[in-house]
């Protein structure tokens, strides 16, 4: 039962190989096997969204996948957002600017959920933004400044001449 399975997975553009027991959750694999502790675990039943990562570009709960299922896939975690020189990703910068985080524990999940949403809906209304955020729980901010950060970012990119 404790057989280990070799997993090869691309995360933030880098190839990782490691062995995992089939029951190991992807969230635990990222955090404890690979040391990518930016992805947080808040509920392990798929409600809080803190563990959200991108699987082949789509947001998924990493607590609701086994690590073995990620074999051969392409993942993006919060560690992959900022530029190589450390500059914040525009979404991260908007969060800071708008004070969209307090304790910061849920923040990686929000960032990862928002990334594909912003691509899908560059002209999202406040209602759509709130609906998109509703799969992630935050206990500190009351969401107001998260909504503000998203709106700021959308306004910025929409006013970009490019």
């Amino acid at each position: 039962m404790n057989t280990q399975i070799e997993i090869s997975v691309k995360i933030n553009g880098k190839q990782y190989s490691a062995a995992a027991e089939p029951r190991l959750l992807l969230s635990d694999f990222l955090r404890h096997e690979l040391g990518l502790t930016g992805t947080h675990v808040g509920c392990e039943h798929g409600v809080c969204g803190a563990c959200t990562v991108l699987l082949n570009g789509e947001a998924v709960r990493s607590c609701l996948m086994f690590a073995v299922q990620a074999d051969g896939q392409d993942l993006l975690t919060v560690e992959g957002l900022a530029a190589a020189n450390g500059d914040l990703h525009p979404l991260q910068a908007a969060f800071r600017e708008a004070h969209a985080l307090q304790c910061g524990f849920c923040t990686p999940g929000f960032l990862m959920s928002l990334l594909p949403f912003l691509q899908d809906k560059p002209d999202a209304s406040e209602e759509e933004i709130r609906a998109a955020l509703s799969g992630n729980l935050c206990r500190c901010t009351g969401y107001q400044n998260i909504v503000k950060a998203v709106k700021m970012l959308l306004e910025e990119s929409n006013s970009d001449p490019a």
Binding site: T37, G38, V78, L81, A82, L101, G104, T107
Partner: peptide, 23 residues
Amino acid sequence: KPIKRNEDPRLLKGQALFVDDVN
């Protein structure tokens, strides 16, 4: 003044240490 927070970059990049990150 509404000064932006010193702690944010670490938190936003997933580099802040929480207890479960201790290994």
